[in-house]
């Protein structure tokens, strides 16, 4: 008879609610969220960390939930798209995606929004990026910065420019000003 695959207990918080699970050690954080907790907002795209559809926040930091084992998250606090806002009370980034038409089919959108929320925090925290002229200085809140930092989220429908506009609105960046900067960055890249 085949042996039972190894299972382990793990507890972590998802969107503020404690979860105690008994999981096959192979279960990714993504599969734990979807198949064991029933939060279907987080999506499985490539399942190899290439598309970003599975992006969630762990202790406030964005990661690919498909490339992390659930048992590695003992004691962590996970935030998914369901934890950012509700249909009645959207997170400002969700509202901006709706306003600016930042999606078409919507499959990548939960990952895009989780990533977008974290990107604005990363810029505010001064995390450097590839498009900075001088990594010794603080990065600017600008469209080129946002676009570079969102490169781990792929949108097959190509809603990128609207996603960037949604992010710019939430960040308080004037789009008219940053369109010029955007083409400068294109030349540099």
């Amino acid at each position: 008879m085949a042996q039972q695959p190894p299972a382990m207990a793990v507890t972590f918080k998802v969107n503020g609610k404690a979860q105690a699970l008994m999981l096959d050690t192979r279960t990714t954080l993504l599969d734990a969220l979807r198949d064991h907790i029933g939060l279907m907002g987080t999506k499985k795209g490539c399942d190899h960390g290439q598309c970003g559809a599975c992006t969630v926040l762990v202790n406030g930091t964005r990661i690919n939930s498909c490339l992390s084992l659930a048992v590695m998250h003992e004691g962590d606090a996970v935030t998914t798209i369901e934890g950012l806002g509700t249909p009645e009370q959207l997170h400002p980034m969700q509202a901006a995606f709706v306003k600016h038409d930042g999606f078409q089919c919507g499959y990548c959108t939960p990952g895009q929004i989780c990533s977008a929320v974290a990107v604005l925090e990363e810029i505010r925290a001064g995390i450097p990026s590839h498009v900075q002229g001088d990594v010794g200085t603080a990065p600017e809140m600008s469209l080129p910065e946002m676009r570079e930092r969102m490169s781990g989220n792929i949108c097959r429908c190509g809603a990128y420019s609207n996603i960037a506009e949604a992010m710019a609105e939430v960040a308080g960046v004037r789009i008219a000003e940053t369109h010029g900067a955007q083409s400068d960055a294109g030349a540099e890249a």
Binding site: G49, G52, T61, R62, I63, N64, V119, R149, S151, G152
Partner: peptide, 8 residues
């Protein structure tokens, strides 16, 4: 890599 990967 990407921001998500560099975080982990």
């Amino acid at each position: 890599a990407s921001g998500q990967l560099r975080n982990k």
